[in-house]
Design a protein around this nucleic acid. Structure first.
Lengths: 141, 141
DNA sequence: GTATAAATTGCAACATATTCGCAATTTCGG
DNA sequence: CCGAAATTGCGAATATGTTGCAATTTATAC
């Protein structure tokens, strides 16, 4: 996987540096928020470099950004991960990743209909997950 | 529509004020980014009030927030708008809204499968729209 | 309409998040 | 290993979002 990253960077005219490897590795197994990333990379990287790296990775589609505001998360894109979608629970805050082949098929139909050449897509469901809806906590607003 | 907004605010214990009407009206016909909103509301509203209003509207589900980072946009929620999804063109930057009943059906299936109680959902396709893919511009990265 | 209490606003200070210029360091091809 | 080019870290500059509080506006009861 690291090799693949190196090649992709190379092809686009960039080099595989220490910081870039660190950021990539940090996201290897899960989607992280900005603060989680900063905590995880604590000391191994300057703040500015983290931003620059995320910007680059986003432009090169090495990562994808999901959610917004406090819920924004960075995760490896489908090229480095199996494609999936998200269930965001508003109570516990967990983000569950799901796969949904039927949706993929419908998206393909849609894309054809609109003559749209998709580079990526993402589906986000926001609501209350199974576990939380079984507990009695109130979703205070 | 304004009447409906008034009623919804009332029910939740809030009043329909000038600033709130202004923000609502600004988004009436299209999804706007934060800076577009600020430009459009120039002078009629303080920055803090805009933030407070957007926060309130979001909590009350009067608006929904789509996209992230530079692409984040605020738009009236499905209660004030027909439910739709988005095609984001990376070349011309336009956001095309589309309706997709087949997708809605599949989402319902998914939701049942995962025991998830959805409050909202959004599908974003990113790529190149029909018009742009017919033109010869190069998508510089 | 007018008075009044409660909600909301604008302002200005604050806090946080993101970006930038530039010298020092690292990377990579030969 | 060397040198050119890319990248990094630092600190300063911006941009974005938040807060407390006095002044204003709103809704309601007369």
């Amino acid at each position: 996987m690291r090799e693949r990253l190196k090649i992709q960077l190379k092809l686009a005219g960039y080099s595989l540096t220490g910081p870039r490897q660190a950021v990539f590795a940090a996201m290897a197994d899960q989607a992280l928020s900005m603060s989680e990333l900063q905590a995880k990379l604590q000391g191994s990287l300057d703040r500015a470099s983290l931003y620059r790296t995320l910007l680059l990775f986003d432009r090169l589609q090495i990562i994808q950004i999901v959610g917004q505001g406090k819920n924004r998360r960075f995760e490896l894109s489908d090229h480095y991960n199996v494609h999936h979608h998200h269930l965001n629970c508003t109570r516990c805050g967990r983000v569950e990743t799901i796969e949904a082949p039927a949706i993929e098929r419908e998206i393909a139909v849609l894309v054809r209909k609109y003559g749209f050449a998709p580079a990526s897509h993402q589906l986000e469901l926001t609501g209350v997950c199974r576990e939380c809806s079984q507990s009695s906590t109130i979703d205070s607003f």
